[in-house]
């Protein structure tokens, strides 16, 4: 299958819209690789600087790599093993600044030992001035808070561990 120029442009637009920086697609002998990070570590890449290549090869499933700052789907394997069996992590959805309370003089959303319900807000993460309320995915007891207040946190890292059994 040959990708037309129009197809490639459409794919690049879609990747830009979704915030993906790396993408590889292979089907029926056509291959498209996009690396918006090309040009060196930490290099700023404008949309449209992605490189493409069409090389014959065998058919493979579509591979999409999430950017470092993208959302991590719920149910993805946690980036770190729980401190003990049966704990459920609250994963950081994107790189940003972690806040335990809604305001500096307000009490934290939760403390270690607190009971939480599924969907309760347990912390905030700020990225580019968007303050995201992060919910507990299960009901239980907070047994560990893994990040310091007002520090940088990375996409996929566990922010807290919840014991659903108590």
């Amino acid at each position: 299958m040959a990708l037309s120029a129009r197809d490639v442009i459409e794919i690049l637009r879609t990747l830009d819209r979704l915030g993906y920086r790396r993408f590889r697609y292979e089907q029926d002998g056509a291959r498209l690789e996009v690396d918006a990070m090309a040009g060196g570590e930490g290099e700023a890449a404008a949309p449209g600087t992605a490189s493409t290549a069409g090389v014959a090869g065998t058919a493979e499933p579509v591979v999409v790599e999430e950017p470092a700052a993208a959302s991590v789907p719920a149910g993805a394997p946690p980036a770190a093993a729980p401190p003990r069996e049966g704990l459920v992590g609250v994963e950081c959805p994107m790189t940003g600044t972690f806040y335990r309370a809604p305001a500096p003089d307000a009490p934290p959303f939760v403390e270690v030992g607190a009971g939480v319900g599924a969907g309760d807000t347990v912390c905030l993460v700020d990225v580019m001035k968007l303050f995201n309320s992060i919910p507990a995915s299960v009901a239980g007891t907070v047994v560990e808070i893994c990040a310091e207040n007002e520090t940088r946190v990375e996409a996929g890292q566990p922010l807290m561990w919840i014991d659903p059994a108590c």
Binding site: A69, A70, S71, V127, M128, K129, L130, A155
Partner: peptide, 12 residues
């Protein structure tokens, strides 16, 4: 229908 890292572009 996006994640928070993309939605943050709404700041701009």
């Amino acid at each position: 229908p996006v994640g928070p890292a993309v939605a943050a572009q709404l700041s701009f």
